[in-house]
Design a protein around this nucleic acid. Sequence first.
DNA 1: ATGGTGGCCATGCCA
Length: 255
Amino acid sequence: MKIASWNVNSLNVRLPHLEQWLTTFAPDVVGIQETKMEDHKFPDAVLAGLGYRSVFAGQKTYNGVALLSREPAQDVQIGIPGFEDEQKRAIAGTVNGVRIINLYVVNGQDVGTDKYEYKLRWLEAVHAWVADELKKYPELIVMGDFNIAPEGRDTHDPLVWNENHILTSTAERGALHKLQQLGLHDAFRLHNDEDGVFSWWDYRAAGFRRNLGLRIDLTLVSDALKARAVAAGIDREPRTWDRPSDHAPAWVQLG
DNA sequence: ATGGTGGCCATGCCA
């Protein structure tokens, strides 16, 4: 079972890319972020034609998440339970017995801003939620656009992307670490040791051409799933296509 | 030190 996470940065613009990628990469489950699309506009019929069921929670202009799966998702949860949030950033479901949480983590703008504080509050709420979910579903995947690069080797320049910089700051990495302390493993790092492998490249300054990127899109697998995570990676190909998203899909394969 | 590209939507905001 191949499970992937992809920030498409507008599903309206990227639907052809998604269709192409579903056809060639053939994932079994996909978590989508930044659909930027209200629910009544979601192309569930098009995706059904490709063999995928969809559940989704969207809004105009910003945010928006969806979960696509070949088998229908059960026990679908939209938003973080008990956490009031107008922004559509979280959706979860159970597919083939595996609980899957798909997140579009708050970007945070800059360290010390209101958005940064919201990001840290939001991650606290995610921690409580995941802790609760793990009790019910030991076989759990938490994936999405985390907007956090776990380590220096997940950035093109650790001197720039340092402990005071957004996406790499001490508090952000601390929140990710605390989440992983629940028993979640970065699937990519179970199988890849190299640095310079990224999932996001800024549109500005020819970031992709120069490979100036960050690895901020993660698939985390629970203790109970760790042995089944037989491969993981990032598929750079859709980032090479015309008018691409600024993110590439991150994936994990369960054996 | 600043802005750079892109999406949404018509202007700045967000990333």
